Simulated assay, not measured.
Amino acid sequence: MQTNENKVALVSGANKGVGFQIAKALAENGYTVYAGSRDLQSGITAVAEMGGNAKAIQLDITNMDSVNNAVRTIESESGYLTLLVNNAAVSHVGKPGRTMEEILGAQRASIVPIDDLKGVWDTNVFATFAVTQAFLPLLRKAPSARIVTVSSSLGSLTINSNPHNPYRSAFDAAYGASKTALNGIFISLAIDLENTNIKVHLVSPGFTATALNNFQGTDTVEEGSREPIRVALAKDLPNGSFTGPANSNGSYDTVPW
Rank of each mutant, 00 (worst) to 15 (best):
2 Q>R: 01
4 N>W: 09
4 N>F: 12
4 N>T: 12
9 A>C: 03
11 V>H: 11
14 A>R: 04
14 A>W: 00
15 N>I: 05
15 N>S: 14
15 N>D: 10
19 G>W: 09
20 F>V: 00
23 A>F: 07
25 A>D: 06
27 A>D: 11
27 A>V: 02
28 E>M: 00
29 N>C: 10
31 Y>N: 13
39 D>Y: 02
44 I>L: 07
45 T>I: 10
47 V>M: 09
48 A>D: 11
53 N>F: 03
55 K>Q: 10
56 A>D: 09
58 Q>T: 08
64 M>I: 08
65 D>Q: 15
67 V>D: 07
67 V>W: 08
70 A>L: 09
72 R>Q: 13
73 T>A: 02
73 T>G: 00
74 I>T: 04
75 E>Y: 04
75 E>F: 13
77 E>Q: 10
77 E>C: 03
79 G>T: 00
82 T>A: 14
84 L>D: 01
86 N>H: 14
87 N>H: 06
89 A>S: 13
91 S>T: 14
91 S>W: 15
92 H>V: 00
94 G>K: 09
95 K>L: 08
97 G>N: 13
98 R>N: 13
99 T>A: 03
102 E>Q: 15
103 I>K: 07
105 G>D: 11
109 A>F: 12
110 S>E: 15
118 K>W: 01
120 V>T: 01
122 D>V: 00
123 T>G: 07
127 A>Y: 01
127 A>E: 08
129 F>V: 02
133 Q>D: 07
135 F>L: 07
138 L>C: 02
139 L>C: 09
140 R>T: 04
140 R>A: 06
142 A>R: 10
143 P>N: 05
144 S>E: 15
145 A>L: 09
145 A>F: 09
147 I>M: 15
147 I>L: 12
148 V>H: 03
149 T>H: 04
150 V>I: 15
150 V>A: 01
150 V>K: 05
151 S>M: 11
153 S>F: 13
154 L>I: 02
156 S>C: 00
156 S>N: 08
159 I>V: 07
160 N>G: 11
165 N>I: 00
165 N>H: 12
166 P>I: 05
167 Y>H: 08
168 R>H: 10
170 A>K: 13
172 D>M: 06
174 A>F: 00
180 T>A: 13
180 T>L: 11
182 L>T: 03
183 N>F: 11
188 S>L: 14
190 A>R: 15
191 I>D: 11
201 H>D: 06
202 L>H: 09
202 L>S: 12
208 T>C: 07
208 T>D: 10
210 T>R: 04
211 A>M: 02
213 N>L: 07
214 N>T: 05
222 E>W: 08
225 S>F: 07
230 R>V: 00
239 N>D: 10
240 G>C: 03
240 G>V: 14
245 P>D: 06
246 A>Q: 11
247 N>E: 13
249 N>K: 06
252 Y>T: 10
255 V>F: 12
255 V>G: 03
256 P>N: 14
